[in-house]
Amino acid sequence: NNDALSPAIRRLLAEHNLDASAIKGTGVGGRLTREDVEKWLAKA
């Protein structure tokens, strides 16, 4: 759900042209964290 994304995470996803639904969030309530996105980028 994009409503649950912080502005910083939205920007990070946009910079790398990523789809938030492709990344499993580990934050509160399954929210994406910066670490989630960075780990996903490291694997890609």
Rank of each mutant, 00 (worst) to 15 (best):
1 N>K: 13
1 N>R: 11
1 N>E: 14
2 N>V: 12
2 N>I: 13
2 N>G: 13
2 N>Q: 13
3 D>W: 00
3 D>T: 09
3 D>E: 12
3 D>F: 00
3 D>Q: 11
3 D>K: 10
3 D>G: 11
4 A>L: 14
4 A>V: 14
4 A>P: 14
4 A>T: 14
4 A>E: 14
5 L>R: 03
5 L>S: 04
5 L>G: 04
5 L>F: 06
5 L>H: 06
5 L>D: 06
5 L>W: 04
5 L>M: 10
6 S>H: 10
6 S>W: 09
6 S>F: 05
6 S>M: 06
6 S>K: 05
6 S>Q: 06
7 P>S: 11
7 P>Q: 12
7 P>H: 11
7 P>E: 15
8 A>W: 05
8 A>H: 11
8 A>Q: 11
9 I>D: 04
9 I>R: 01
9 I>A: 04
9 I>Q: 03
10 R>M: 05
10 R>Y: 03
10 R>F: 02
10 R>L: 07
10 R>V: 14
11 R>Y: 05
11 R>D: 10
12 L>E: 04
12 L>N: 02
12 L>T: 05
13 L>V: 04
13 L>M: 07
13 L>H: 00
13 L>Q: 00
13 L>G: 01
13 L>T: 00
14 A>Y: 09
14 A>P: 00
14 A>K: 12
14 A>F: 09
15 E>R: 06
15 E>K: 10
15 E>L: 10
15 E>T: 07
15 E>N: 06
15 E>A: 11
16 H>F: 06
16 H>Q: 02
16 H>I: 03
16 H>M: 07
16 H>C: 07
17 N>S: 09
17 N>F: 10
17 N>L: 08
17 N>M: 08
18 L>V: 12
18 L>E: 04
18 L>Y: 05
18 L>F: 10
19 D>I: 09
19 D>H: 08
19 D>Y: 03
19 D>R: 07
19 D>N: 10
20 A>N: 04
20 A>I: 13
20 A>K: 06
20 A>S: 09
20 A>L: 11
20 A>Y: 08
21 S>T: 11
21 S>N: 12
21 S>I: 07
21 S>E: 10
21 S>D: 12
21 S>K: 11
22 A>S: 13
22 A>Y: 09
22 A>L: 15
22 A>I: 13
23 I>P: 02
23 I>W: 01
23 I>M: 08
23 I>E: 01
23 I>G: 02
24 K>E: 12
24 K>R: 11
24 K>D: 07
24 K>Y: 05
25 G>S: 04
25 G>L: 02
25 G>H: 04
25 G>K: 03
25 G>I: 04
25 G>D: 02
26 T>F: 03
26 T>P: 02
26 T>G: 03
27 G>W: 01
27 G>Q: 02
27 G>M: 03
27 G>K: 02
27 G>A: 04
27 G>H: 02
28 V>W: 05
28 V>K: 11
28 V>Y: 05
29 G>I: 03
29 G>F: 04
29 G>E: 08
29 G>K: 06
29 G>S: 07
30 G>D: 04
30 G>T: 03
30 G>N: 06
30 G>I: 02
31 R>F: 07
31 R>P: 03
31 R>M: 13
31 R>K: 14
31 R>L: 11
31 R>W: 05
31 R>I: 13
31 R>G: 06
32 L>W: 06
32 L>M: 07
32 L>H: 02
32 L>D: 00
32 L>R: 02
33 T>P: 00
33 T>D: 01
33 T>S: 05
33 T>M: 05
33 T>R: 05
34 R>D: 12
35 E>Q: 11
35 E>W: 08
35 E>R: 08
35 E>V: 07
35 E>G: 08
36 D>Y: 01
36 D>E: 03
36 D>G: 00
36 D>P: 00
36 D>K: 00
36 D>W: 02
36 D>V: 01
36 D>A: 01
37 V>N: 00
37 V>Q: 00
37 V>S: 00
37 V>L: 10
38 E>N: 06
38 E>G: 03
38 E>Q: 08
38 E>L: 15
38 E>I: 13
39 K>R: 13
39 K>T: 08
39 K>A: 13
39 K>I: 08
40 W>R: 12
40 W>I: 15
40 W>F: 15
41 L>P: 01
41 L>R: 00
41 L>Q: 01
41 L>S: 01
43 K>M: 15
43 K>E: 15
43 K>H: 11
43 K>T: 13
44 A>F: 15
44 A>C: 07
44 A>N: 13
44 A>D: 10
